[in-house]
Each structure stands twice: as structure tokens, then as C-alpha cells.
Amino acid sequence: MRVNNFFICISGCLLLVGCAGTTKRPVAPVADASSVQRPVQQPSSTVTQPADKDKNIQIRAYEPSVPKAVAPVHSSAVTSLVAQAQLLESAGDLTAAVATIERALRIEPRNAHLWNQLAHLRFSQGRISPAADLAMKSMALAGGDIALKRDNWRLIARARRGAGDVAGARVADRKARMLH
């Protein structure tokens, strides 16, 4: 008797679980592939060459758009500090220039341009390894700024070359060239 009650209880639970999972869900509409509108890429140049006497073949060369450099956006305080750091650097006071950029970074810690500038200053001080690390930090924050990323890779290549890592410098140079 106990075995029958056990099986009845189990089969009742399975029936409830099975019924609970059969809710009707709306089906997403499927668009016809021919009705989907795709953006049309304008060719940069078109060359027409006669293939046969009756036909003309158009050859279009694809040229990707050149990414624009992103101008650094600073608050007025940071703009003032950057200008002061540039004056200090041109006067040869790298230690004061570094301190000024570090003050700017306390205001805008996610500004990739400030990290890049600090990396260049550290490299100028002869602190090669921190310069490469700071350039990598700048690269992580650079987003779509291709020019800034290229500059960071070039600085990393110079730092690796200065540290004797010729193979690492070649890799960094290659990455800088790939960013067009």
C-alpha cells in the first residue's frame, strides 16, 4: 500500500511539473531577408573596364574611412594644469611637470590623454618600465581614439627597445602600424 501511494505521489508531482512548463510564448516575427534595409556603402572610386564588347564591368575599390583623432576634453582646472605641465616640461623641470599631471589625474582619473602625457614624462625621466605601464593604462582608457592608441604603442615600443626587449618592441611597432 505504501509503495502505491509513493508512486501515485511521484506521478502526481511529475504531472504538475510537466504542466507548469507548457506556457504559450509569443513567437517573434521573422522578417524576409529581402525586406531588410541595409546601409549602402558609397564606393570611393569606380573603374569601368570593358570585359566584352557588349558588357562593362564595374570594379569598386573599398577604402575604409580614416578615423579622426579625438581631441582631449578637459575641465577648466585640468586644462590649466596641462598647460602648466607643458611649460614646466619645456623649461626642463620634469619632476614638477609629473607632479602637475598627477594633480590633473586626481581630478580626471579616466582621462587617457593625461595617462599618455604622464607616460611620456616618465620616459623622458628615464623611467622606462613605468612609462610602458602608464601607456598601457592610457590604452585601456583610450576607447576609439586611434591616434592616441598609436602613440601609446609607439611609446611602448621605444620603452621595450630601451629595456633590451627587441622582439617586444617589434610587436609593439607592428601594433602601432596596424592602427590606421
Rank of each mutant, 00 (worst) to 15 (best):
G21S: 14
T22F: 11
K24N: 05
K24C: 08
K24F: 10
R25D: 08
R25A: 12
R25T: 14
R25F: 15
P26F: 13
P26Q: 06
P26L: 14
V27N: 07
V27Q: 07
V27S: 09
A28P: 03
P29V: 15
P29G: 04
V30L: 13
V30Q: 11
A31Y: 13
A31T: 09
D32M: 12
D32I: 07
D32Y: 04
A33E: 07
A33L: 13
A33I: 13
S34L: 08
S34Q: 11
S34P: 02
S34Y: 04
S35I: 04
S35D: 12
S35E: 12
S35Q: 10
S35G: 06
V36P: 00
Q37A: 11
R38W: 13
P39S: 05
V40R: 09
V40G: 02
Q41L: 10
Q41D: 06
Q42N: 07
Q42Y: 11
P43E: 07
P43N: 07
P43V: 15
P43R: 06
S44Q: 14
S44I: 15
S45G: 13
T46V: 15
V47D: 08
V47R: 06
T48K: 01
T48C: 02
Q49E: 05
Q49T: 15
P50D: 08
P50L: 13
P50E: 10
A51S: 15
D52L: 03
K53I: 02
K53Y: 01
D54R: 04
K55P: 01
K55Y: 01
K55S: 00
N56D: 10
N56V: 11
N56A: 15
N56S: 10
N56I: 05
I57T: 03
I57R: 01
I57A: 02
I57V: 15
Q58G: 03
I59Q: 06
I59W: 09
A61Q: 15
Y62M: 00
Y62F: 12
Y62P: 00
E63T: 11
P64Y: 07
S65V: 08
S65E: 09
S65C: 04
V66D: 06
K68V: 15
V70E: 08
V70K: 05
A71E: 14
P72K: 08
V73P: 02
V73F: 09
V73S: 11
H74K: 03
H74A: 12
S75H: 05
S75R: 04
S75W: 02
S75K: 01
A77C: 03
A77Y: 05
V78W: 03
T79C: 10
S80F: 04
S80T: 06
S80W: 02
L81E: 05
L81V: 03
V82N: 03
V82E: 12
V82D: 06
A83H: 09
A83D: 11
A83G: 10
Q84M: 12
Q84F: 07
A85K: 04
Q86D: 14
Q86N: 11
L87V: 02
L87G: 07
L87P: 01
E89G: 05
S90R: 14
S90W: 04
A91H: 10
A91Y: 05
D93H: 02
D93C: 00
T95H: 04
T95K: 08
T95M: 05
A96G: 10
A97K: 06
A97I: 11
A99P: 07
A99F: 01
A99N: 08
T100N: 01
R103G: 11
R106A: 15
R106H: 10
P109T: 01
P109A: 05
P109C: 09
R110M: 10
A112W: 00
A112K: 04
A112V: 03
A112M: 00
